[in-house]
Design a protein around this nucleic acid. Sequence first.
DNA 1: GGTTAGCACTCTCGCCTGAAGAGTGCTAAT
DNA 2: ATTAGCACTCTTCAGGCGAGAGTGCTAACC
Lengths: 339, 339
Amino acid sequence: MGVGSRKRDILRVVVTDYIKLAHPIGSRSIARRYKMGFSPATIRNEMADLEELGYLIQPHTSAGRIPTQKGYRYYVDELMEESDLDEEEKKKILEVYEYERMREIEEIIKHTSRLLSSITNYTSLILGPQLRKSAFKKLQIMPIDSQRGLLVLVSDTGFVKNKVINLPQTLSSGELNKIVSYLNRRLEGLSLEQFTSRLINELRRDLYHYVRFLEDTFTLVEESLTEDERRVILGGTTNILNQPEFGDIEKVKGLLSLFEQHSQLASLLSAPLADVDSVIIRIGRENILEEVQECSLVMTTYRLGNDIIGTIGLLGPTRMNYSKAVSVVRQVARRLEVM
Amino acid sequence: MGVGSRKRDILRVVVTDYIKLAHPIGSRSIARRYKMGFSPATIRNEMADLEELGYLIQPHTSAGRIPTQKGYRYYVDELMEESDLDEEEKKKILEVYEYERMREIEEIIKHTSRLLSSITNYTSLILGPQLRKSAFKKLQIMPIDSQRGLLVLVSDTGFVKNKVINLPQTLSSGELNKIVSYLNRRLEGLSLEQFTSRLINELRRDLYHYVRFLEDTFTLVEESLTEDERRVILGGTTNILNQPEFGDIEKVKGLLSLFEQHSQLASLLSAPLADVDSVIIRIGRENILEEVQECSLVMTTYRLGNDIIGTIGLLGPTRMNYSKAVSVVRQVARRLEVM
DNA sequence: GGTTAGCACTCTCGCCTGAAGAGTGCTAAT
DNA sequence: ATTAGCACTCTTCAGGCGAGAGTGCTAACC
């Protein structure tokens, strides 16, 4: 299919119209809506060819055509033009981040997810800061009462994690301070993925008197690396219900309960790290998970500092407005990077 | 309707059968399922009376009857017996809290909500610790780098709150320590609701040199009092989709988006504080919010320490298993109180 | 008088049918 | 290569029909 060929034009029209109208597109309606200079019959022939080639399909004989997954793929790769955002949408983006300068990273992400879903009416997914890649910044243990203390861990990307731990009664505040400053010295600048069992054992040796209460400290860091890395922030989870293709409860059920399983979502968002900065589109069955095989995901990575720290994405039906989704995701990611 | 009257028995049967079977209950099926010693015709007469009295209603002529809101109300007030839990369910409860001793209150609540929804198949709502009622325990500011610090606030109920704040460059660590220990002394034992603007102004006077960076501290406490108090933890939000009465997307939509609005949910859960320890049931339109007028809420308060600190509840269709919901909610709340 | 059997009536639900509408594929003409 | 024409297919929707379930009423029964 060469550039400027009639087939290309017709495929483009079918895809964009189907995205807009959500029902099969017939030759007659194309001829009516766009004055292409061909009769419906000609268009019909071309459409039959496009079906032969696997780009279109008929839901049943004598309905119009709708794009196949391959058709969408060709569209986003070859035909789509990235649309510019409305003035209003641009303004919305600016406003959100206007007042966000000082907040914690968690807050920024939550607002971002709300922003994405409110502009697009799709569901937004944000894979939070990859704690693994971020560096240790500071650790502190503040005594709460005689038995308990609060362990606080801060990463250079502004991520904070707490845990209440037991303190041995025998521990003086002087000793505690010494331990804390030892740990800070020892861990300074390490990325959290360097916090391996070898390192832990080394620390254990050095601090063998206090090992029992330090176990909690180690546990916290480990939890941060595993469980917490999979944290996904969602926005607009009910937007999907407005899509006509999800009018059936059964279809929605799987999707909505997927939204409660963060580790699954995290795997969905794991992008090939090669394509940093580019926007990745996964259409239908290109996604691994069963539940989203009738959905598409438009996503990109965002960075804070120099390391990649997360992914933001929009999930909609395969019939989603890719053009808009791509530009929204791109713009917001860019905006996020200058925070 | 006196105790032991036939009407009572029949009302009980209609309500329990409808809860179980989810379709209108007819006189014939009652006579068949329960050998009551009356013919269907007699039961029919009684049912006609019950309809007259407003306890039952027919969805259409010549269908069976279903309970009205008034019918459910009579049932829960007069007829229902609290059911005991299965061994398996009891075990489930024990297991969850077995490994929870050390965790932060937030974690405990999350697990509790998962527990509630998994046992009952309804949606669980937990109104978190009422920070307002809990007392200030400890405040700490840990420097992260030369410009920023992490402010950490701990309440006596184990609630932790963080915020990244700007530190004036000119501030020495000695000065910082002095400020922190002054604040700790000054705030010791105060309940957070005593943290009023009068107090803030007093602090402002005493620390007028540092006011600008302390503003963030004050803000944090204020936020904790307002925004954060309304935090609601949800579990099993998609369970509602399994109920036959919510087979229609339109009905579900409102409910699911309500689940994203925490302040609304918080208002739903606000219970008359008079009935601490008792389980409160709100049936259908007894709930204020539009979206849950076809749902019922079974809830009770739980305490940590001596002050009431929250509410746990189960939300299901009006046709929910009240008997089970009441006992689950009661048992879990009780279990929570000995943490 | 309370209870019951009998019966006509009503309403839902699933199924079929038929007409309207939309779109196609094929053929023959341009 | 393109187009007009036409028969054909398929969906959708309304209407109709029978089965099933349940009712209300009446008259008989204990």
